[in-house]
């Protein structure tokens, strides 16, 4: 299992290198955006996989509340951390792109605002986690907070879209040429593999440290049962 995960991770890194190489040096510059459009080859996959990871987090949270098994909590931490990391990266990449194409670092458009709020929501869950020491409580509370946060995302999205619609609709011309789809796809799979690897790895570490936290208690219980 461990080797499989590492293999997927290495494959992901390799694909990311290939996809980024194609995106940066092989694909033609976009008609209007020019070379700046190359940020999209890493930006769009980051967005997709970040959203996917937060969906994983939601699923793991429900699974934990349903089964009460620690392994779901282990995976939940992994998924939460990756979605926060990808969410942060998404914002930085987006700002760099926006600086060149729109001339501004930030605008309160739908996708930007929703990404920012999502990043804050999930970072908040991780913060809550860091404040709770008791393992059972930590697991349950992070699952509950993850569900609450995830449900908010579509509400925020529609709200911002509506809120903004009075001012301007940010149009981004999406004329995607076939030579641009290839690096986009490669990087999407690369990000997916890397995310799966990192979630599995983080889960394994969490389960190890959990094992280290608890043993004395377990021995006590066993002794009580024997006596």
């Amino acid at each position: 299992m461990r080797n499989v995960a590492t293999g997927i991770g290495l494959l992901g890194i390799l694909l990311l290198l290939v996809g980024s190489y194609v995106g940066l040096f092989v694909a033609p510059p976009e008609r209007h955006m020019g070379d700046v459009q190359r940020i999209m080859y890493v930006h769009v996959p980051t967005a997709w996989i970040g959203l996917l990871c937060s969906t994983f987090a939601m699923i793991f949270a429900v699974a934990y509340l349903w089964t009460g098994r620690n392994r779901w909590d282990d995976r939940l931490v992994g998924a939460l951390e990756i979605s926060v990391i990808l969410g942060g990266l998404l914002l930085v990449q987006g700002m760099l792109w926006g600086r060149v194409t729109w001339g501004i670092w930030w605008t309160w458009d739908v996708r930007l605002t929703t990404s920012l709020i999502m990043f804050l929501l999930f970072a908040g869950v991780l913060a809550l986690r860091s404040f709770v020491e008791e393992p059972l409580r930590r697991a349950t509370w992070s699952s509950v907070a993850t569900i609450i946060a995830y449900v908010d995302v579509p509400l925020v999205y529609f709200c911002v879209r509506w809120f903004r619609s009075l001012h301007q609709v940010q149009s981004s011309p999406e004329t995607v040429h076939s030579s641009m789809i290839i690096p986009l796809r490669i990087n999407a799979f690369a990000m997916l593999f890397i995310a799966i690897w990192l979630i599995a790895w983080r889960a394994r570490i969490e389960s190890k440290s959990r094992g280290a936290e608890r043993p004395p208690e377990r021995i006590e219980i066993q002794g009580a049962q024997n006596g």
């Binding site: 980024s20 940066l24 510059p29 008609r31 209007h32 955006m33 020019g34 070379d35 700046v36 190359r38 940020i39 890493v42 930006h43 980051t46 951390e81 990391i85 942060g88 990266l89 930085v92 990449q93 760099l96 792109w97 600086r99 060149v100 194409t101 890397i194 990192l198 790895w201 983080r202 570490i205």
Partner: peptide
Amino acid sequence: AGVIIGGWPYVITAYSITAVALALNIARL
């Protein structure tokens, strides 16, 4: 033709930050 010229520093920065962040996370794990 209304094409944005340049922007390479921004492109390189975006890719570098992504790579560095992923590498840091791997090192942390």
